[in-house]
Simulated scan of single mutants.
Amino acid sequence: MSEDDGATGTGDAGRVALELADWRRRVAELYAAVRQEADPREGHRLWRAGRDALFRGHPQSALRPGDPLRETGLPCWPYDPAYRFEVMLEPVPDGSRALELPSGENGSTLLRAVGLLELPEPVGGTVTLWWLEQYAGGLFLPLRDGTAGAESYGGGRYLLDTAKGADLGTAGPGDRLVVDLNFLYHPSCRYDDAWLCPLAPPENTVATRVEAGERMA
């Protein structure tokens, strides 16, 4: 299993459940430390180190044994402050709507649109913020950009998945969402197709190349 929908296969259900709970706990603690850091660049450094440590040695790592990324760390573009925004959430014009995304051979993920985010330049474009109905609910913001299929995973990357601990928080009095694209990360299915994960829908696609966050190499 992973921070996504979980790996398929058999095994000791109790052990796997405890490992998954520990993974999510550690991810939540990592993002809590990021939110407390006043310097976004330093927060990004903490995030990269924490992600590398989890993927290197945690039993729920999506990296297969012997994967060289366990030693080198996950490839990532250098931090660029131009990709950090504080964005107001705008209403969905046609009201809240649901979307069911396939998340594997026999699974699906139900999302509900809760608002629109207009991303400033250098990105440009509007994307949808979703509420993930699984896991007792949580904000979910995937993104597929112009690097997808080459420098980043073809199915897109994730920025927010608050049900699993990936939460950059809000700014000001809490009416603006922190959208720092330097924290875009690959879903676990990028590393091993035994993991199941919903991919970015068309509403979360931008043509601009976002050279920030995790990359393929």
Rank of each mutant, 00 (worst) to 15 (best):
M1Y: 05
M1K: 02
D5V: 01
T8F: 01
G14S: 14
R15S: 07
V16M: 08
A17E: 12
L20F: 02
D22L: 09
R25L: 15
R26A: 06
V27G: 00
A28F: 09
A28L: 11
E29N: 13
E29A: 15
L30I: 11
Y31L: 08
Y31Q: 05
A32L: 15
A32H: 11
A33Y: 11
A33C: 10
L46D: 01
A53N: 04
A53M: 04
F55C: 02
R56S: 11
G57N: 13
P59I: 14
S61E: 01
A62V: 13
G66M: 04
D67F: 06
D67V: 05
P75W: 13
P81Y: 06
R84L: 05
F85R: 04
E86C: 08
P91H: 05
P93Y: 12
P93C: 10
P93T: 12
D94T: 13
D94R: 11
L99E: 08
P102E: 14
E105I: 06
L110C: 02
L111M: 14
V114Y: 07
V114L: 13
P120K: 10
G124V: 10
T126Y: 11
T128I: 04
L129S: 08
L129H: 06
L132Y: 04
L132S: 03
E133C: 04
A136L: 09
A136F: 05
P142Q: 13
L143I: 08
R144Y: 06
D145Y: 07
D145M: 12
G149E: 09
Y153S: 08
G156A: 04
R157T: 12
R157M: 15
Y158S: 08
D161L: 11
D161I: 02
A163M: 02
G169L: 13
G169V: 13
T170Y: 03
A171L: 08
G172E: 06
G174I: 06
R176I: 03
L177C: 03
N182E: 14
F183K: 01
F183Y: 14
F183P: 00
L184R: 05
Y185A: 04
Y185N: 01
D192L: 06
A194D: 02
A194Y: 00
L196Y: 00
L196W: 01
P198A: 11
L199H: 03
L199K: 03
A200Y: 00
P201A: 09
P202K: 03
E203R: 00
N204K: 00
T205P: 00
T205K: 04
A207T: 13
A207L: 14
T208K: 11
R209E: 14
